[in-house]
């Protein structure tokens, strides 16, 4: 395996759902459009985007746990080999660990200690106890059922489960909301340590500020696709180093920066513009932007989907 080979690469992924409108009439709703991303071992890729914009579905598509009315096109490769449905079943929970967004993903009928031990090789109790201690979970918590935990505790159990596995790829879907700042810090530092050991991490979140200190790359998700992937150092100053007009706008809108909004709102799936997904709100938009969608291209050590980015 080459040194820089991606653990995971996603190419032109499109996810759509078949929905019934009235009676037996069906529509197809596209929620992810032509998305590409890749992660190398030892790196953290943060995917940032608004909640409800479909970024969780990216994680679900990689793991192969989308509902049955979803249709997926495009290719995904794990370790350079195509990630087929059979491989997804074989890899998930072993080579690919997942920290889900909702605490409903815990098994309600199984004690949480046992749930975490299920992802440890040889089912070792010490490893599970260590990780619980690290996340400030008392020793008696392992014998509790999920309904006996608070939201924050349940979330720490979910995080523990993914951290103890020796998965080579960890996908964390909004692992931190609702946790104390110290625990958020702990979880993010822990993810960084795991990456430094050579694993690959995909960190999905809506909070740019939170990932600036841990991520290597940031992919900016808008209306179902990644408009830009940039090294984290580009998220600085007034955002001059950023490539896509949306990423620049997002950066400037942070309360610690300029807090300036741009007009308009993200299009909903089902009413996406014909051309570039950001064209209706873009100050730089020209005719070609309204007519066709720009393909992703390499630019200054990052990737961008814009005709005008320089």
């Amino acid at each position: 395996m080459a040194l820089n080979q991606s653990v995971l690469s996603v190419n032109e992924l499109t996810v759509s759902f078949r929905q019934y409108t009235r009676g037996l009439r069906q529509i197809e709703l596209t929620v992810i459009t032509g998305l590409s991303a890749e992660i190398q071992p030892g790196k953290i890729l943060a995917v940032i985007g608004s909640s409800g914009s479909g970024k969780s579905l990216l994680a679900h598509a990689i793991l192969g746990i989308l509902p049955s009315n979803a249709r997926v096109t495009g290719t995904m490769a794990y370790d350079g080999e195509e990630l087929t449905a059979e491989r997804q079943v074989k890899l998930r929970g072993r080579e690919i660990a997942f920290i889900p967004q909702s605490v409903n993903y815990l098994d309600p009928l199984m004690k949480v200690g046992a749930q975490v031990r299920a992802s440890i090789k040889d089912n070792k109790k010490e490893v599970q106890r260590d990780i619980f201690a690290r996340y400030h979970l008392d020793s008696q918590v392992e014998n509790l059922y999920p309904f006996q935990l608070s939201g924050g505790m349940a979330r720490r159990v979910l995080v523990s489960g993914a951290m103890v596995s020796d998965a080579r790829l960890i996908i964390a879907d909004e692992p931190t909301p609702g946790l104390h700042p110290e625990i958020v810090e702990e979880a993010l530092t822990h993810l960084r340590q795991l990456a430094d050991e050579g694993r690959a991490v995909m960190l999905i979140t809506h909070d740019v500020g939170a990932v600036l200190n841990v991520a290597d790359y940031i992919a900016v998700f808008y209306a179902g696709t990644t408009v830009e992937t940039a090294p984290v150092k580009d998220f600085a100053g007034k955002g001059e180093a950023l490539r896509h007009p949306y990423s620049k706008a997002l950066w400037k809108a942070l309360p610690q920066n300029d807090f300036i909004p741009v007009s308009g709102f993200q299009p909903s799936p089902g009413d996406l513009p014909l051309g570039c997904l950001f064209s209706p709100r873009c100050p730089m938009a020209s005719r070609e932007c309204f007519e066709s969608r720009p393909l992703e291209r390499e630019l200054r050590g990052g990737k961008v989907r814009c005709y005008h980015a320089t």
Binding site: S51, S53, P177, A253, L254, P255, P261, V262
Partner: peptide
Amino acid sequence: TTMLDALIQAQ
């Protein structure tokens, strides 16, 4: 606006 992205938050 905790669950929303920075742009919608500012708006």
